[in-house]
Design a protein around this nucleic acid. Structure first.
Lengths: 163, 163
DNA sequence: CTAGCATGTTTGACATGTCAATAACTCGGG
DNA sequence: CCCGAGTTATTGACATGTCAAACATGCTAG
């Protein structure tokens, strides 16, 4: 593809120093950002990002309930991870699990009033944190570029996964 | 700055739908990317990203050793996290801790031959994974932009932290 | 000297994640 | 009827992270 400029993009196995610096800045900063957003969420509502994802999905579901594996797909987690997380959330009274009427193997996950309320209280502070820590740090072009970079990375990872 | 278009960037508390989509793509993709890179590293060398960070710092240190808190600063971890991690690495024979000669409170962390060898074996595959999963997914401009976005986010987080 | 504060590190309790194994149930053929 | 393969969800063992408390030692004011 890049035969005309072989020294630029092809024939190289390893990243250049500049590329490596960009990678390190990128990966370290996203980690830091994630933990800051999580702190804000925790402080505002006592919820973890995982709790938030589960409560968001349930809140948007018809009847505020969902089958366990449906929920796993929706939030993009492995079943096992979800199961452990639901156990913790159930202990804290945020959700309730009950046998599924139509499939005795399955479980229905229900939002409790406490879960509904915690989620309600967390929404605005969480969105405000995203605004303050992400959107406000960047220009409009950078926000757009960040979305495009994420999309390109995601597409590339998908392509690698099953070619 | 944006007085001429007040509805665009100011007076708003919450992100727009586009901004929120960019945020979600960004944060979810970086998480996915992190875990893919970690899998590659694990497969190639049996090391976790944390192991790699510690071994990299020790490898670059004079005498292949470092004081524990120096190491914590270098990799950007809390002391407690480092202590737990060093315990696990020591059990696996990657590093060794011994009393510091000059300060009886302190610990020196030393690289073992096994640690040196594991790190050596991991370097090229790890850099290749960064090349394949990050650099190759993006244009040169995007790699540069990713670095700049990370720098802007980092600076903004620092500014928020202590003013 | 010694009480008390600072420094360097570890520990314990717990939240979060992954992986492999298990349990409980469905369903389609013999 | 029953076997075996697939589906749904949970479990256990363990790695990784955070927070607060504990420990050990050094330093300094009285």
């Amino acid at each position: 593809m890049t035969k005309a400029t072989p020294e630029r993009r092809s024939g190289r196995q390893l990243p250049t120093a500049d590329e490596l610096r960009a990678w390190r800045d990128f990966i370290e900063t996203t980690e830091l950002l994630r933990s800051r957003i999580a702190s804000r969420l925790q402080a505002a509502s006592g919820l973890s990002p995982g709790d938030y994802a589960v409560l968001l999905a349930l809140t948007e579901a018809p009847d505020q309930q969902m089958r366990s594996s449906e929920l796993a797909t929706h939030v993009g987690w492995e079943r096992s991870r979800l199961s452990h997380h639901l156990g913790r959330m159930e202990r804290r009274g945020l959700i309730r699990r009950q046998e599924c009427a139509t499939d005795p193997r399955g479980a229905e996950v229900h939002l409790t009033p406490a879960g509904t309320e915690s989620f309600r209280a967390s929404t605005v502070p969480h969105l405000r944190a995203i605004r303050e820590l992400f959107v406000d740090a960047l220009t409009q072009d950078q926000v757009r570029a960040a979305g495009e970079i994420a999309a390109a990375l995601h597409a590339h990872l998908d392509a690698e996964r099953r070619p």
